[in-house]
Amino acid sequence: MKRRILFLTLAAIGILFVMPLLVMLVASFMGVKELTATYGGVLGADKEGVSFVLLPRCPTLRAYIELLFDSPGFFVMFWNSCKQVFPVLAGQLLVAVPAAWAFGQYEFKGKKVLYFVYMILMIMPFQVTMVSSYLVLSKTELLDTHWAVILPGVFSAFPVFILTKFFKSVPRALMEAARVDGATDLQIFLRIGLPLGYPGILSVMILGFLEYWNAIEQPMTFLQDKELWPLSLYLPQITADKMSVSFVASVVMMVPAVLIFVFGQKYLEEGIAASGLKG
């Protein structure tokens, strides 16, 4: 009995958590008339209040078609998002993975201090480092280019921090054995480190994607030119202009992130768990 009450409570909370997604999804299949009738009160039409609809009365793909064929702005911004997110991830692969390998597998002078610096950098909010990054970006004339968002993202401390915990669990005896067989440090990293660390690398990539697909602060600060804005920042402007596509645009923006979540949940959870490990 007690267990059943607990189950039902959890189920209710679970539904509450998924509710926003469901409402958005349902609304994305509505026609303009139904949208206005249901949500017009909030979205600007002269109507009082919103009503709750479980399923659209006459579901239509009209809004999707309008978004895909009649909203060039949406594509530009979607593309901008891709141009910023994937280079950040690629850069993190090249920069953060080797750095984490060094922290996880080697002993060297100043390691503790350096790792502590990375931890502090991970903790500091964007606002602390934004002036510093701005000064460099403006001196190198990278402001108002995609690089202004990409470069500071590549050197984020968070992936180094999480990956170090994954690489620490690779037994060092493996590296010693390979060295006895005459492997160089680089070969060991490529042939042992990467294959054994790939769950960690995957989870860092997933966490990174979710973070930068959702970027607001960085593009808002470093990109004055709205033509360069990613979808995560520009979407409200699309929805303000065209109520008919507002829900569809939100849903399409959500789809890549939710897909990655569904297929990568295992790695995502491993990454989260690793971020909670001490040391």
């Binding site: 958590f17 997604l21 009160g41 709750f52 959702n214 607001i216 995560s232 929805t239 949940q265 995502l268």
Partner: peptide, 26 residues
């Protein structure tokens, strides 16, 4: 179901929060 909100971009659910917390909202 508890974890999925962390995957959803903030900008995608802002509309929903407006539907909830508006004067005429849910």
């Amino acid at each position: 179901s508890f974890l999925i909100p962390m995957a959803v971009p903030v900008v995608s659910v802002v509309l929903f929060w407006q539907l909830v917390f508006d004067r005429g909202g849910y």
